[in-house]
Design a protein around this nucleic acid. Structure first.
Length: 831
RNA sequence: GCCUCGGUACUCCAACGGUAGAGAGGGCGGACUCAAAAUCCGCACAGUGUCGGUUCAAAUCCGACUCGAGGCACCA
């Protein structure tokens, strides 16, 4: 059973090269023993870094996308370990969710088995992929030990009034047979299965994220520059805060005024009618008992018949009905008609608007369709809206507006709000697009909502000492989606005495949105085995917030917004000491094939296991980071794993050529190679810290090339500088190609693990260059280049430039207007 | 429709406002070989999407356009 290199594996080179499968099998058990990535305890003197990868959903084995994401997180974690930090780099599984349940239905089995099998597969793949996880920190959200704390969190929020139930039209996926949060509806379709989402009126649990809307927007200031601008923009967009005013309109024949929300109170004089949401209670109330009531009812039927997709089409003609009621414009006493339409949303603002057709496109469309008057109140220089059909949305001076005449927009808004406030007719106000987070789900495989419904006590939270409310064994239970939770059908589970009065009561049969599970999991890692609390405050204070979060941009809104929300809730409860969970965020791109996302149906699926088999773990990891900037998509068709492997072999061969002994004094080595080594290490550090991993690899390649040259035709293999360079290469490569690096480290005469070797100290003296090239320009055109000492003074450099023959020739006889000297870079002589 | 980001060689990608090329892939040629692979050496190809502005100097800053990617989309 002898394992000789180059005879054992599938990947063979006649030239000296290492045996990939052999080397991979060789080091894994060694690392298992050494646990180089076990995070230190609270008393660890090293400064901490919490590097977090978004945890996977256990749907089968790891794929190319996982490989990219986890390589990026791994490079970062390994880098900070080398730099002497106490690094926490944990992993877990986002293990509740529909795929497990659907698989269970297909095989009439328990979702548990499928889930834990997949977790085992992924876990072993991660080990083989050399992920630097701390395997003592693992969590699975489907473990009762985890979801117990999910339930605890829910009850805490319930007690604070942040979790509540309400009747509301909700998004319903007819295929998944469950409700969806707003965030899970993409262009009218279910984000999971692409079915057309319908509306259903249901009583559901919500979390009051809208209470935190302002803070979610404002606190983004501290994420500026730390998170991708794109994500911040998407969140701002999603929350959709707008500034405006609420204005009261008296209603003829009604004691109570109607309040409308507008972002353009300056155009109040241009309001020629009012529109209320057709489905709002207000609309039906206004026509109650009149002959219009049946007309409204009929209109409502038509509106309901139109699908969400139709509703989304913005070019759809406006529809609505006149309610035969009138409102009084508070600024000019004008009597304006009240209409009902589906273009006004019941659950935004007050569900009623003042319509200013001259300056709002939607109102203009409606006015033209219904033949309602249009009055200009802002002089924008645009053409007449009633003629062109295009609203004059631009800025200009106010006209036809009483006291506002002549003012510009901002001044007019300030003035009108002041005037309205003085008469108690209006007030400055904000509004949000964000809605409360609907977390009930009518499915089995999730955290049971820990509430007991008692006929006399109402909603009673399950007492702390009875948590967790465990999911029953699913074997023999019909999990097929029927529109209500399968748990509700299990008599023995659902029927319980009320914890307060002891009367017969029922458990809430719904389960929580799995985004609840993932909205706080980063806290659980620090106390993953603690059964007393969800997370220990001392551990949290030691490790949190997360220093570096790595994951896909697909979670830009959902997961990241919910996590930020929950963190703020926990902060307010005094359970954590920070308000933003993720200090820095890196979004990796996707791995594509031939320009599009990989999928079996498209026939462009690249299997990770095949690639690993063909090229080895290191070459795949290297290819992932070398392909380009991490946030860009990678087209696997553009990537050359064999090229990566070629480079790794080139690097590895250097370790075999070194003839000096470990511990040799580098200071006596060849100066020019030493300079390259130190410059490279410096550049690699900088590139890694700024996430330019592709550049970092390019620098390692340069160092390998320089070392090769030094060995073959320079100072020779015995020079200490060659060992210094080879060790630097091994340490740098340990971030991305751990097997190759460990093998190099061994051949260089060291004991494992290279991962703990420590980043070499950089000698600043070696970063100074002997000579730099200066550009000599005349009128910005390059005439010559000269090598000078990098510390040359500006006057000396100017003198040198003036003496240069090329320059002399170029300026002969001309008058010099200006001389720009930027030592030691260039001299530009302007004639 | 509105907003954000991007466009550099055949391809993927580098370049504090100051030499357009770091690195790689692919191609071609040579050395080695019976031959191929691997390895080593060499070569070529040529380009900052378009137009304008700021500047001594623009791939880089500003504006418009164009193409591509993404987000929001009756949110008043």
């Amino acid at each position: 059973m002898k394992n000789s290199p180059a005879s054992h594996g599938r990947i063979l080179f006649m030239h000296e090269a290492y045996d990939i499968p052999f080397v991979q099998e060789k080091w894994l058990p060694v690392w298992d023993q050494l646990t180089p990535f076990k995070s230190g305890n609270a008393d660890d003197p090293r400064p901490k870094k919490y590097v977090l990868d978004m945890f996977p959903y256990p749907s089968g084995d790891l794929h190319m996308g996982h490989a990219e994401a986890y390589t990026l997180g791994d490079v970062i974690a390994r880098y900070w370990v080398q730099k002497g930090f106490n690094v926490l780099h944990p992993i877990g599984w986002d293990a509740f969710g529909l795929p497990a349940e659907n698989a269970a239905i297909k095989r009439s089995a328990d979702p548990r088995a499928w889930t834990y099998e997949n977790i085992a597969v992924q876990k072993s793949s991660m080990r083989r992929f050399a992920c630097s996880f701390d395997w003592d920190r693992v969590l699975h959200t489907c473990d009762p030990e985890y979801y117990k704390w999910n339930q605890w969190l829910f009850i805490e929020m319930f007690n604070k009034g942040l979790a509540y139930r309400k009747d509301s039209p909700v998004n319903w996926c007819p295929s998944c047979q469950t409700v969806l949060a707003n965030e899970q509806v993409v262009a009218g379709l279910c984000e999971r299965c692409d079915s057309v989402v319908t509306k259903k009126k249901l009583n559901q649990w919500y979390l009051k994220i809208t209470d935190y809307a302002d803070r979610l927007v404002d606190d983004m200031a501290e994420l500026e520059g730390q998170w991708p601008e794109k994500v911040l923009m998407m969140q701002r967009n999603w929350i959709g805060r707008s500034q405006g005013a609420e204005v009261k309109f008296e209603i003829e024949g009604r004691s109570e005024a109607i309040t409308v929300y507008t972002t353009r109170p300056d155009t109040l004089y241009g309001a020629t009618f009012m529109v209320v949401a057709a489905d709002a209670a207000l609309a039906s109330e206004l026509v109650e008992g009149t002959q219009v009531a049946p007309v409204l009812a009929k209109y409502m039927e038509e509106v309901k018949a139109a699908s969400d997709i139709d509703r989304l089409a913005t070019d759809r003609p406006k529809s609505g009905i006149f309610l035969e009621r009138y409102a009084i414009n508070p600024v000019n006493g004008e009597r304006i008609p009240i209409w009902a339409s589906d273009y006004v949303l019941a659950d935004y603002g007050t569900g009623a608007i003042m319509a200013v057709p001259a300056h709002d496109q939607r109102d203009l469309d409606f006015a033209r369709a219904m033949k309602l008057p249009i009055r200009l109140v802002v002089e924008t220089g645009e053409e007449d809206p009633s003629a062109t059909g295009i609203a004059a949305a631009g800025e200009g001076k106010l006209i036809n507006s009483g006291s506002l005449n002549g003012l510009a927009k901002d001044a007019a808004i300030a003035k009108i709000i002041e005037e309205l406030s003085a008469k108690n007719l209006g007030i400055g106000a904000k509004n949000y697009r964000l809605r409360d987070w609907l977390i009930s789900r009518q499915r089995f495989w999730g955290t049971p909502i820990p509430i007991i419904h008692c006929p006399s006590c109402g909603e009673v939270p399950v007492p702390q000492d009875q948590l967790p409310v465990e999911l029953p064994d699913a074997t023999g239970i019909d999990l097929k989606p029927k529109g209500s939770s399968p748990l509700g059908a299990i008599e023995s589970w659902v029927n319980v005495p009320c914890p307060k009065c002891g009367a017969a009561a029922k458990r809430d049969a719904d389960t929580m949105d799995t985004f609840m599970d993932s909205s706080w999991y980063y806290l659980r890692y620090v106390s993953n085995t603690n059964n007393e609390v969800a997370f220990d405050r001392k551990e949290v204070d030691t490790w949190l917030p997360v220093d570096q979060y790595v994951g896909g941009v697909t979670h830009a809104i959902l997961h990241l917004l919910y996590s930020r929300f929950i963190t703020k809730v926990l902060f307010d409860m005094g359970k954590v000491g920070f308000q933003e969970p993720f200090t820095k965020l890196l979004n990796q791109g996707m791995v594509l094939m031939d320009g599009s996302a990989m999928s079996k149906s498209r026939g462009n699926l690249v299997k990770l296991s095949d690639e690993l088999e063909k090229h080895g773990v290191d070459a795949i990891r290297l290819s992932m980071v070398f392909a380009g900037p991490p946030e860009d998509d990678i087209d696997w068709a553009d990537v050359s794993p064999s090229g990566s492997l070629k480079f790794l072999n080139r690097a590895w061969r250097i370790s075999g050529d070194v003839t000096s002994k470990p511990g040799v004094d580098f200071a006596t080595g060849d100066l020019s190679l030493r300079k390259v080594t130190h410059k490279s290490l410096n550049d690699i550090s900088f590139a890694v810290e700024t996430f330019r991993f592709n550049v970092a690899i390019a620098r390692v390649m340069e160092l390998v090339n320089a070392t090769r040259k030094a060995i073959d035709s320079g100072c020779g293999p015995s020079d200490p500088a060659v060992r210094e360079a080879a060790e630097a290469i091994a340490i740098a490569l340990s971030l991305v190609a751990p097997f190759t690096a460990e093998e190099m480290w061994e051949r260089l005469g060291h004991k494992p693990a290279v991962a703990l070797a420590g980043w070499p100290a950089i000698d600043p003296a070696l970063l100074e260059e002997d000579a730099v090239t200066v550009i000599l320009q005349v009128n910005g055109k390059i005439k010559d280049r000269i090598d000078v000492n990098p510390n040359i003074s500006e006057s000396d450099l100017e003198k040198l430039a003036m003496e240069n023959p090329e320059i002399k020739a170029a300026i002969a006889g001309a008058i010099i207007t200006k001389v720009i000297v930027r030592a030691p870079k260039l001299v530009n002589i302007v004639l």
